[in-house]
Amino acid sequence: WIARINAAVRAYGLNYSTFINGLKKAGIELDRKILADMAVRDPQAFEQVVNKVKEALQV
């Protein structure tokens, strides 16, 4: 799951650890299995999560 998430978030200019930190700051409580599945099956929803994380990180 970690490898999938890392590959997906790198397309948005983040790395895995920064993304996970941003999830916590944004108050998003999705587990890694769901995030990895979302990255593959629903990229639009995953992009929305990434955008919320970037807002929380102020990137």
Rank of each mutant, 00 (worst) to 15 (best):
N21A: 15
R41Q: 14
A45V: 07
R41Y: 14
D42R: 11
A56Q: 08
P43M: 06
A36E: 02
I20Q: 05
Y12C: 02
K24R: 08
K33D: 06
I5G: 00
N6I: 03
S17W: 15
L57T: 08
A3D: 07
A8M: 04
V53R: 01
D37P: 03
I28F: 08
L14G: 01
I20S: 10
I28A: 05
I20M: 15
L57C: 04
V50S: 01
L57F: 05
M38C: 07
K33F: 10
Y16Q: 02
D42Q: 10
G13W: 02
N51Q: 08
D42P: 02
G22C: 03
Y16S: 03
T18F: 03
V9A: 09
G22R: 02
A39W: 07
N6R: 10
G22N: 03
V9M: 04
M38R: 02
K54Q: 12
Q44T: 07
E55L: 11
A7S: 07
K25M: 10
L14P: 00
A39T: 15
K54N: 06
A11N: 09
F19K: 00
L30F: 13
N6Y: 02
V53L: 03
G22H: 03
A26T: 13
N6A: 12
V40S: 13
V50W: 01
S17N: 09
A56L: 05
I2C: 04
L57S: 07
N15E: 05
N6V: 03
K25G: 07
N15K: 08
Y16V: 04
L35K: 01
V49R: 02
R41F: 11
I2R: 14
I2T: 01
A56T: 10
N21D: 06
V9C: 05
G27L: 06
D31N: 13
M38K: 04
V59M: 09
Q58K: 10
Q48W: 12
G13L: 02
M38Q: 06
V50D: 00
G13A: 05
K25S: 09
M38G: 02
G22Y: 03
A56S: 08
K25Q: 11
K52S: 10
I34K: 11
G22Q: 02
A7M: 10
S17L: 12
V50I: 09
A3Q: 13
A45L: 10
G22A: 04
F19I: 01
R32G: 15
R4N: 06
K33S: 13
L57N: 06
Q58D: 11
N6E: 15
D42I: 06
K33P: 11
